[in-house]
């Protein structure tokens, strides 16, 4: 059963250069790009107005952002390798709280994820290490997981905080147990670069995708691959689970965004507004009964989609 989504709004030229990352809260969407500022747009108004600009967040551009599930803490990482931790105030405005710099010079902080309450930040490095910092304790590094040294291109933390998953350039995918600090599973990987990993909301499934153009679903507890979602014709750069865990959103190099039904293991919607790369796709909070999502990438705009009703 396919679903229909309509474009409800597009923020043209949201950034002067490629938009690399989107992160959402209940009422906001944060976007980062090759330019130095991070922009915050309100998602609870029909015209998605610009709410705040975090100027000079990252001088060289900002390639990844993350927001804690509770919406209180954001993190951003720039091409210079520095992570900034942002806290939201009561009026919804963000301010910089602290910085985290990997003290190991061989490393380079790349992909990031925040724990549910924003206390912990997990990040990958070029040399394949996975580090976890405690934001409350002045950014002290509390975990360092070693892998085989392949570039860690993607990372996620499970909502319950128990697991860290990382996807690597050599196709490797790892799940670490944060409680024990040990490797939990080394998954049968994808051979090619894994550019996105994402835990399902309940933490039972892990989705991984990248240059192999398929999405692999793994059972977190057993480590078994339980499904392969095929249909993308280009590198998959971004994955996001809907709040209910029913749907998975994926964005690809060729500008296509797909919605996958987890129950049916099939693609239920494909949209393409542009042939330009989609660097990031994200579900939006539900308004009423309708799911919606946002996409952004090389065309420098942010597009908003809503499920068509009454069909």
């Amino acid at each position: 059963m396919s679903k229909q989504y309509l474009t409800t709004h597009t923020i043209d030229h949201a950034h002067p250069t490629d938009i690399f990352s989107l992160s959402t809260t209940a009422s906001q969407i944060l976007s980062s790009s090759g330019s130095s500022s991070i922009r915050v747009h309100s998602t609870n108004q029909p015209d998605f107005p610009l709410f705040q600009t975090l100027d000079n967040a990252h001088k060289l551009g900002c390639h990844h952002t993350a927001i804690s599930t509770n919406g209180q803490v954001a993190a951003s990482v720039g091409f210079e390798g520095e992570v900034k931790i942002w806290a939201v105030r009561d009026d919804g405005r963000w301010s910089e709280r602290t910085k985290i710099v990997d003290d190991n010079k061989a490393g380079e902080i790349w992909s990031i994820a925040l724990s549910e309450d924003g206390q912990y930040l997990a990040a990958t490095s070029f040399d394949g290490r996975i580090n976890v910092w405690d934001n409350l304790a002045d950014g002290v590094k509390i975990r360092e997981f070693e892998t085989k040294g392949s570039f860690g291109m993607s990372i996620d933390l499970s909502v319950n905080g128990r697991f860290t998953a990382s996807g690597h350039e050599n196709g490797g995918i790892y799940i670490f147990n944060n409680d024990t600090g040990r490797l939990f599973h080394s998954l049968p990987g994808l051979v090619k670069p894994v550019r996105a990993v994402a835990f399902s909301p309940r933490g039972t499934l892990l989705a991984a995708a990248g240059d192999s153009r398929v999405i692999a679903l793994y059972d977190v507890s057993s480590g078994d691959q339980v499904a392969t979602l095929t249909g993308h014709g280009a590198w998959i750069l971004s994955l996001d689970w809907s709040d209910s865990g029913e749907y998975l959103l994926s964005g690809a190099f060729d500008g296509k965004v797909k919605v996958w039904s987890i129950e049916q293991r099939t693609c239920v919607a494909t949209h393409r507004e542009t042939e330009k790369t989609l660097w990031s796709v994200k579900w939006l909070p539900k308004t009423g009964k309708n799911e919606g999502f946002a996409t952004a990438g090389a065309n420098r705009s942010i597009s908003f989609y809503r499920e068509a009703t009454g069909g």
Binding site: T17, D18, F20, G34, G61, H63, F79, F151, M153, E169, P193, W279
Partner: peptide
């Protein structure tokens, strides 16, 4: 600048 960023993004 953009091209350097793309190299880094996609490696």
């Amino acid at each position: 600048r953009h091209e350097l960023q793309i190299m880094l993004m996609l490696n």
